[in-house]
Amino acid sequence: MMELVCPAGTPAALRAAVDAGAHTVYCGFADETNARNFPGLNFSRPEMAEGVAYAKARGARVLVAINTFPRAGEQALWHRAVADAHGAGAHAVILADPGLIAHAADTHPDLRLHLSVQAAAANPDAINFYAESFGIRRVVLPRVLTVEEITAINREIDIETEVFVFGGLCVMAEGRCSLSSWATGLSPNMNGVCSPASHVVYDEVAGQNEARLGGLLIHRTPKGAPVPYPTLCKGCFTAPATDTGPAQTGHIFEDPVSLDATELIPRLQRAGVTALKIEGRQRSRAYVAQVVRAFRAAVEAAEAGAPMPAGLLAKLTEGQSATTGAYAKTWR
């Protein structure tokens, strides 16, 4: 059966994931060493050890995401996170920065290393470089590849591949977002948060809901209408008139939709993919329980050759609509 890799932003969400049938849960410490550094989220050191024990007792595994890029002079914070994840009994750590990967490989030779999606390794040469240089055992593929490209990659590499099947999409080369950094002065890759909450303001203006990031208006939606996350990449903007056409208002970079690749699971299985990943460490235990239950049923159906269940999770998706993203290349 394909492995289901599920998110947990809190110990309660970790337990919900394991109880709902997750084979593996990924989570992070409560600091800027991981890419979901949100207020009130993530794990203390004792919580991580307890979470690992809870998962192990039920036959599940825990991966610790340490997938931001260490700042010069501050590497000790990231080194400590790797050591503490190892000490807590994590099955593996998910890393992106080559320097941190080298440190982990040298200092903790028995620790299993996964290459984060943030490393954006999208071709066999890049993946083989990480595997041969540092002993990386699994790569999380960027959400820019078609199923055919994933098949081609798997033919030329010897390590496992993990792909996203559900949740938020990032239009940048996996988190390397100059838009969010420019608007807030905080980098998704180094501070671990895209559209930091401290820079987001919601307001009701003339009967409409407005969302601003760093003072920039991102959305104006009628009350009661679906609302997306306050990210610039999914903002609704007006492009000025040009010689060739009138001014246009719309989602210039990306529509506010979420990934749902349920229907592609059998093809991903045939493409040689080992593990399916669900995005959403910032979401609640209710989201985790519902999504994990649905995807556990889907991977069991795929294993049995049965048809894929569809359309069960629309309410949980951003924009309340879903796409198969780049996998089928119908994505704008």
């Binding site: 909450a197 401290s198 919601y202 809901n209 009661g224 209408a225 679906p226 609302v227 609640s284 309410k315």
Partner: peptide
């Protein structure tokens, strides 16, 4: 119910200090 989903659907609204 998931808090973000309630927010996406407009069933919950927030204002002030988002953090």
């Amino acid at each position: 119910e998931d808090g973000d989903a309630l927010f996406f659907s407009g069933e919950l609204a927030i204002a002030g200090d988002t953090s």
